[in-house]
Amino acid sequence: MNMAKRVEAVDVTAYYGSFKAIDSITMTIEPKSVTALIGPSGCGKSTFLRSINRMHEVTPGAKVQGKLMIDAEDIYDPRVDVTAVRRAIGMVFQRPNPFPTMSIYDNVVAGLRLNGVRKKSTLDDAAESSLRAAHLWGEVSDRLKRPGGGLSGGQQQRLCIARAIAVEPQVLLMDEPCSALDPISTLAIEDLIGELKDRYTVVIVTHNMQQAARVSDRTAFFSIESTGDPGRLVEFDDTTKIFQNPGEKKTEDYITGRFG
């Protein structure tokens, strides 16, 4: 099993074309913990999350400046292989996106198979352990050959989590993983996040402040001055402190619902 790693952002600034989406974010995300990124829409929390595994640059015209260190290795160094970065830093998206042409089994092992793992026993083991870790094994073990698109929304999202952890990443990024799900599926995934932090560094973007309070150890509050301004990190501290005794007036306004 891979070791969870520390993520250090130093002056990370991200652009879409000429639009500056986030401005010099500096923060350290500790290994084996859950860090929540909260803030109003457009504050750049998703952009920051996507710059941690270099998904930001997939958008045409998007670029990132600054340093992003994974255990002291800068992933924006020109010599770094972007596919290796993404293998080490998994991601779960807002909407479940299982591959529609693949079965449940093929979806889970897609990351391994498309990266050259062929041995059947290895794939079988990875599929079972990932599905068990994602609390989906019991529901799908008798229909692994059926299409992943036939599952419910919550099951699909857990399938996507299983797919992400099957490649044994060191960091797991989650971009509002529950926003398309009902409360019961949301609860299942929150429980799962609590278990995943024993093995991974988890970073989760969420609009739901109760969720941030429930699942995370530390919380980062992002905000913008007004539309068109870049997002900035306002406060980053232990979740209990952010929610009970925030250091900044803006954070307090946001979490008490007076703003945003």
Partner: peptide, 24 residues
């Protein structure tokens, strides 16, 4: 979202096209 899902697994672009985009 399917392309991004594949990229996020560390799958190179050409393989994403061959194994995810074209079959879909």
């Amino acid at each position: 979202a399917l392309r991004e899902g594949s990229y996020a697994l560390g799958v190179p672009k050409w393989k994403t096209i061959m194994r995810v985009v074209l079959p879909t």
